[in-house]
Structures are given as C-alpha cells and as structure tokens.
Write a protein that binds this DNA or RNA. Structure first.
Lengths: 211, 211, 211, 211
DNA sequence: CATGAATGAGGATTCATTCAT
DNA sequence: GATGAATGAATCCTCATTCAT
C-alpha cells in the first residue's frame, strides 16, 4: 500500500528538520534550510505544520513514539526481565546508532524540560517521555516481582538505565565514532545488571556462567 | 580580603547569565535580560566579555572549573576508591542541587559537542570537560589497581557514573524537586557500586555488613 | 518591452539609496530611510542586495557605468578630438545637472580611494573609474596624434578635465544652483581647450574665427 | 616661547584626529582611536572639544587657515599675477604633499557642503573656504587688470585652479605616490596658465621663451 | 585637570510568518 | 495545493557622551 503524497511530504519535512535541529538546535536551525533539504518551498512547510515550534514538537513526538514502540515490543517478549533489559539496551543503542540526530535534539530539550520557554512541550512531549520511562519501569517491576532485581524504585531504575545509555551515546559521539558502540554497550549492560541484580540472582548468573 | 569591584561585577554578570541561559538556552536568552538581572547596562556586558558567545563559554568554563575542583578535592582524600566514589557522587549531587541552572546549560551543550555551531567550544570547553572525566577515571583506576573495581575501561566507568548522576538530576528537575534528591542519590550510588565492584569486594562489603 | 518587476524594484532601491547616501554619506544614511523612500520594508532590501555596503557599491557601479556610456558614445562620434572634448564636457555636465546626488556620493569616495575602509571598493569601483579615465584619455591621444593637443600625458589630461568639471559642479552646488551651469561650463571648456591646444591649432582656431 | 601645555594637547588631539578622520571619515573614525593616538584618555577629549563634530569642524577650520595663510602670503608677494599663480600652485601642492590627510578629509566634505547633515558646517567652514577662494580670485583679478589673464569670472578661475590641483592630488594618491607630484604639477600649471592667458600674454611668453 | 568605567540610544541584519499568485 | 517575495519585529553590538573619582 503506497503512502499518500501528503504523508510522504510530511515525512520529508520531518527528516529534513531532524538533521537541521540536530546540527544547530531549535533557534539556530532555519526553516529555509529545512525547506531546501526537503525540496519544498519555505511556505509549504506551513501547509503541514502550524509553526516552527509545532514542527519541532511534532518531530520529537514522532521520534519518541519510535522509542515507545521499541520498548513496548521488548515488553511483550516472552523472556524474563533480565533478558528483556539486555534486549532493550541493545535495541535502543542500535536505534540511536542510526539516528544520532535525535539524540542531539532530545537530550538538550530534556535538560530544559522544567523551565522551557516552549510551554507546549509540557503537554505534547513530557507525557510521551514519561510513557517510555513507565514502560521501562514495568520491566523493572517484573524483575523485582521475579526476585531477580533489587527492590528499588522501578521508575528510578528506568531513569538509571536511560542515563547510562545516554552517556554511552554522548561519549560515542564525542569520540566521533572511533570506539565501537557495541563494546561499550556491553560494559554498560554489565554494570547496570550487576548493579541492580539481587544477590540471589547474581549467584544464579554466576553458576549459570560456570556451567 | 575583599574582591575587587571589577571581579564582583564579572561575577554578577555570570550569575545573571547562568539564570538566563538556563531558562531559555543560548539563542533565546537576551543580553538585555542578563544586563537587567545584573543591574548593569547592556553595553557594560561588553566591558567584561567580548560577545554573547564569549560570555556563554566563559560561564561554562567557570562552572566546569568548579566540578574539576570538586573532583580534585575528592581525589586527594586519603580514603580508598570506593569511598571516594561515594564522596564524589555526594558532592556533585549536592553541587547540582544548589546549581540547577548549570545542569540546564551544560547538558544540552554537551549533547551537541560534535556538531556545535560555536566553534570555540571545542577549544575552550571540551578540554575542561575531558579533564573532569579523566580525574574521575583516575579514581576508577585506583579502584581497579586495589582490586576493588572490575577491570573495565576507567574512562567508560567515569562516563557511566556521570551519566547516572545526570539522569538523576534530570529526573529530579522533571519531578520539580518533589522527590528527595538525597534518597535517589543513594539508590544510584548503590547501583553503580554494585555494578562495578569485583566479586571479591562485594563479598567483603557483605561480610562487613554482616559483622 | 516592460521592465520586470524585479528590476523595477531594484532601481527603486538604488534611487532611494542615491538620495540617502548623497544627503548623509554612507555611514549616516539609514537603511530604514532608504526602504521608506523606496516604499519597501527594510528586510526587502536584503532580497536585492547583500548588505548596506553591497548596495552602496552597486549604486556606484551603476552610476559609473552611465559615465562610461557617455564617454564611449562621445568616443564613437565622427568629429575630431577637440569637438569630442567639447561634447564630453557638455554631456557630463548635463548628466550631473540632473544627477547631483551622485556627485555628492562619488567625490567623497574618490578622495578616500586609497585608504577606504570598504575593501571591496578596490575591486568593484576603482577599475570602472579608471576605465572612464582611460576612455577620456583615448580622446586626448587622438588629439595629440592629430597635432591638435599638446603632447602631454593623456591620462593626466583626462584627470585635469575631470578635475575641472568636478570643481565646476562643486561650485554650482555650493552656490545652490543660482548660477547658470551652462555658462560656467563654457568658461571651463575655454580654459581647458586653450590650455591643452598646440600653438598650431590655436592659430587655426583664431584664423577660423577671423574668417 | 613655549606653547602652553593646554595648547600642546589640543594640537596632539587635532593631529590624531586628522589621521583618524582621513583614514575612515567622520562617522567611522572613533574617538577612542583618536584618544589613543594622542596618548590621552577618551574623556579628556571633551575638555578640549565639545563633541566629535566640534573636533571635526575645529580641525577643518585650522587646516583651512593654513591654506588661507599660504594664499595670503602669495598675494603679498611683489611679483606679477602669473608668477603668483605659479607660486600658489607650488606652495599648495607642497602643502598637500606633506598633508595628504587633509585632502582626504576636506574633499569629501566639500562635495556634501550643500546638503550636509552637520548644519554647523555652513557657519564654521564654508566662510573660510570662500575666503580662500576669494583670495585666489584676487590674484586672478590682478592678472585680468594687468591684461595678462582673460577677462573671465575671477571666482570661476579660482575654482578652476583649485579643481585642477585637487584632481592632481587625487591622481597622485590613487597612484600611491608612484608618479612624481612635481612633474604632474608642472603639467597642470602649464595647462592652466595657457588656458587663462590672454593672446597678448601668450605671445609675450612665447617670445620670452624664444629669447 | 585627567581618567576610563558605565551608559543606552541607535542601527544593520536575520528570519519566522504571511499571502497574492 | 504550492510558491517565494515581502514583511517587520526582534536583537546583538557599537560608540559618543557623561561623571564619579
């Protein structure tokens, strides 16, 4: 089934915007530049988005949806929680690897969530962000119930995981991709899992390993 | 010894700038606003800084110096590495607690380090940032040598710690300070330490606890 | 054939700029004033010129082209050199008479050619100015070859003529047009021609007159 | 007799201003730059001049006075008019040769006399300029009375001479001093004198030459 | 007298947004 | 639907002028 022309153009704009916003940030990115990249006239952008801010927020919404999809898919897997966390890390890192731009767009924005001068961000973006966190927290909760994960605040665990992944991507970008993302990713996985597992589970794992 | 008038004014500007940049980001922050807050005329800013960008970068430099100071102080403590890490987390979190603004300024900037359109950032800020990371990594190296920390890339460990702290602050800001930063801080400490300790060390700790 | 809208607007801006620059000079002339006079918004100027300086230099280029045209036309006439010089003076004076503004723009600029702080002026304006001088010098050379003009440096003769015309216009402007430009123009013509003619030619002229 | 300190500083400022105004023009020249060059503080300028404009006009007044002095001195010589004109050209050219700056300041200003947005210029500068012209015209009048100069408007003759000298200096500056000023100066003298002499006088001169 | 830090009005330039075609 | 010319509000930076020391 072919996507309608309208939807194709919307996507072209969003892709162009992603690159532009990633490179320069919201204020410094130019609509002209986005239009050029999308091979459309500047005025045409307004047929698809109400304003620069609407375009920006729509982009973040769309991108966050992808993360929610990734997390939901992992949630639905039939393996146990530790396994799900490993999958989640792998999938999210892989997604960022081919989508560095969103990292450069979202991380700045998240830091300014509380005092942002884009009031709409609170309504359109924060809920989606929380949804992703909550889905991750659900996995943590499972693990706690299963006795595999320490009985800590699952939301906090979800944030911790997200923070580790974020830092990993930031380092990778700073090193300009010189270091293998996969290798560092495994280190982070180890730290996080060893950090959150119950003593019980660790032994198990160790025994499993020994087997 | 009293600070000279010149230095006092410089600091007034930097403080005003910190608030403004934190609230709106580099581009959207107005020099007029900064001048107003510093109770100076707009033109006066230019007696202390060459441009908006110079003010911005000077601010980040000064603030990063504070982090470097904190980390250096911890490095010089005479306790062992695990203890140093605990202190480091505590001191950094405490510093962010009274200095939320810098979090909102630096995190966005760090995400865009590679593609930033402030070219001077590479020379003026990134080296300082790396210095902080390296100091933290030094503590990690000590721990590894002492056999207390898993033999992982110390730089990566430093990034991991920084990522966890960052996420912690981000969550705290998002929750608008409703949750105790100290409590979450302890959770993060636990996760990180358990995640990086050698099996040996963990036993020791456990045994210690049992005692 | 009607001029395209684009070209018409460009000319409206140049005309507005001519008045403004003539009245106040480059620095003191305001783009807002130029825009108002051209019945356009300030920002619109930037659709036609890259900067205030570009507008200024474009204006001078266009105006110098008119002088070059005048001089080239005279060059191509089929009369002898003395006659051409008379025509040249008449046509240039007539052109200045309806275009006082350019005199007020170019004369100041010419005086500062060597030390100008508009570096592009060297590339964009001086060559055109020299071209005009060279065309005039060509006429002088003809006269010298014909034996009608003293064998002096033709370039210097061209400058001398230009200087006489300039001073004439300056006086006329200073007198606020109270004196007939045509009459003074004839005096200047007499002085210049009698000053440059060979003794031979002077006799001829005298004899002709006597006839 | 030593000049008072006050007068010395005033002159230092005027000299500094001359260079600055010559290089950049009235608007673009900076008081800071003038103060630096005069080795004084910026504020000190205001102890000697009321404003930037006052400094500018004072400078022009002083410089015009020098030209008036030169012209008056020539006037008082006991030779006949043609000789005086030769002396005048020589002295003025010599003065410009070591005082190029004033050329770059005054010529632009003169072109804008009529529409200038410095209203005071009319009162402070134009009268002095006219005085210089009138003194030169006086010499012309003498020549006419002596029957040596054609019976043309002496004021116009004065302007013509000034125009020729101006153009000479302008060419010299444009050529960056590559050409000898003295040589071109003689050509201009020849053109002007041959242009204005009566037939009678020319014969005399010719005969004199032949002798 | 001399200073130079502080002022703030002023202006070139940019760019999101609109709208006639 | 699509365009891109036109708009003009918004903001960084400059610099003549003032005045407390």
């Amino acid at each position: 089934m072919r996507k309608s022309n309208k939807i194709l153009k919307r996507e072209a704009i969003l892709n162009a915007a992603k690159v532009a916003f990633a490179e320069k940030g919201f204020d410094a990115a130019l609509l002209q530049e986005i239009a050029d990249r999308a091979k459309l006239a500047k005025g045409t952008l307004y047929l698809y988005f109400n304003s620069k801010e609407d375009l920006f927020l729509s982009l973040i919404e769309d991108e966050l949806d992808k993360f929610i999809d990734i997390t939901e898919t992992v949630c639905k897997e039939s393996c146990h929680s530790i396994e799900k966390i490993k999958m989640l890390i792998k999938n999210i890192v892989r997604h960022f690897e081919v989508n560095k731009e969103f990292f450069c767009i979202f991380t700045p924005e998240r830091a300014g969530f509380t005092k942002t001068h884009h009031p709409e961000i609170r309504e359109r973006v924060i809920p989606k962000y929380r949804k992703g966190i909550n889905l991750t927290a659900k996995i943590m909760k499972e693990g706690i119930k299963e006795g595999k994960i320490k009985s800590l605040d699952p939301i906090l665990l979800a944030y911790a995981l997200s923070g580790l992944i974020n830092t990993l991507i930031a380092k990778w970008l700073l090193d300009e991709g010189k270091v293998s993302l996969e290798k560092s990713s495994m280190v982070v996985t180890t730290i996080f899992l060893d950090g959150i597992k119950t003593d019980n589970e660790k032994k198990t794992t160790t025994e499993t390993r020994r087997t």
